[in-house]
């Protein structure tokens, strides 16, 4: 880089950096930051239905109440349970498929087709999927019940919608079914990003497919796996459309997730906006903490080291330049 370029890039153009960031910042302030702060503010008030709003005498009361709210805590537990029930099979299946699709000894034909089909449920409107599944699992004459009977698995129809564990399982299955294709494609691309040299070295050492997968592929997938974990976790904690539309959060609240709880508190019955706002902020803090932990775990130590080195380099460079002047 010569001097004029540096000049062009760095100094006189900085204002464009600010300028071009304005649309994002303005929209962010209006449509995201303000509503978030406003939600937080509502958490300190007694805003309910259409009544006039007052800040509470003890501003943290709503937050104190919400962490003792049995139904909210149950909804958090439901959220976590359903998410785990979906995530473990999802990541397992995705890993198996990844191993198959990237195996260098046996090439599966029709991979393109399978990838397209596995990913497909992900693009379909959640509302459509929820209603489709509640129709499929209908009692007593839904398609699934008919299948169970015609295959002789059950003599009588099973009422999935009034069974707590079945409902949880189905919601988890829908989540699993819509996301495993996405996860698999992410992982496949992660594997393709691993340098072929490492595999060649492994071949020379005589490692078999299984060994290669566990010793080389998995460790190198760490970043992608953690990325999947974080995005899936944020999505999972916000699970809303499917549980609400599949069985209205029931039976007996078994599929009431935190988001469904917030929706019901705020937008039905007595419209306790303050309570929903407090619950929202608790959920937000949970997401924030978990994300921070995961981010800390997934921080790339090499990259950080590199960055530090680069910085040092740049400093040196600048010093040199100055001296040059």
């Amino acid at each position: 880089m010569n001097k004029s370029q540096r000049h062009l890039k760095g100094l006189s153009y900085a204002k464009y950096g600010y300028l071009f960031a304005i649309p994002f910042i303005v929209i962010f302030l209006i449509f995201q930051l303000y509503p978030t702060l406003y939600t937080a503010f509502i958490g300190f008030t007694d805003m309910k239905g259409v009544n006039p709003v007052h800040v509470l005498d003890h501003p943290f009361d709503n937050f104190k109440d919400i962490v003792h709210n049995q139904t909210f805590l149950k909804s958090l537990r439901n959220t976590v349970v359903i998410w785990i029930m979906n995530f473990i099979p999802q990541i397992t299946l995705a890993l198996i498929l990844t191993a198959w699709f990237t195996s260098r000894t046996s090439k599966l034909k029709g991979q393109g087709f399978f990838k397209v089909v596995f990913y497909m449920p992900n693009i379909i409107t959640a509302a459509t999927i929820a209603i489709l599944f509640s129709t499929l699992f209908g009692f007593p004459t839904g398609p699934v019940n008919q299948l169970l009977k015609s295959w002789g698995i059950r003599a009588t129809a099973f009422d999935f919608m009034t069974s707590k564990s079945a409902s949880k399982l189905i919601v988890a299955f829908i989540q699993f079914w819509t996301w495993y294709g996405n996860t698999m494609i992410l992982l496949v691309s992660g594997v393709l990003g691993i340098s072929p040299d490492i595999y060649e070295a492994a071949d020379i050492d005589g490692a078999n497919g299984v060994q290669t997968f566990f010793r080389i592929t998995l460790p190198n997938l760490k970043t992608v796996l953690l990325y999947t974990l974080i995005t899936s976790m944020i999505g999972g904690l916000n699970m809303f459309d499917i549980p609400l539309l599949f069985n209205r959060g029931g039976p007996d609240g078994a599929t009431t997730t935190a988001s469904v709880f917030i929706y019901q508190v705020a937008f039905t019955g007595t419209n306790l906006y303050y309570r929903a706002a407090a619950a929202s902020m608790v959920l937000f803090v949970i997401v924030l903490i978990l994300s921070a932990i995961l981010f800390y775990l997934m921080r790339d130590k090499d990259a950080i080291a590199m960055e530090k080195m680069k910085k040092a380099e740049r400093k040196k460079h600048k010093m040199k330049e100055r001296r040059g002047f």
Binding site: T36, A40, F41, A266, Y273, A277, S280, F284, S291
Partner: peptide
């Protein structure tokens, strides 16, 4: 900031957004 915004779950801001 952008990375932080990424974290904010949609439903969290909904109540404020709706009132606003």
């Amino acid at each position: 900031l952008i990375m932080c915004v990424l974290m904010i779950p949609g439903q969290v801001t909904a109540i404020g957004f709706y009132q606003f």
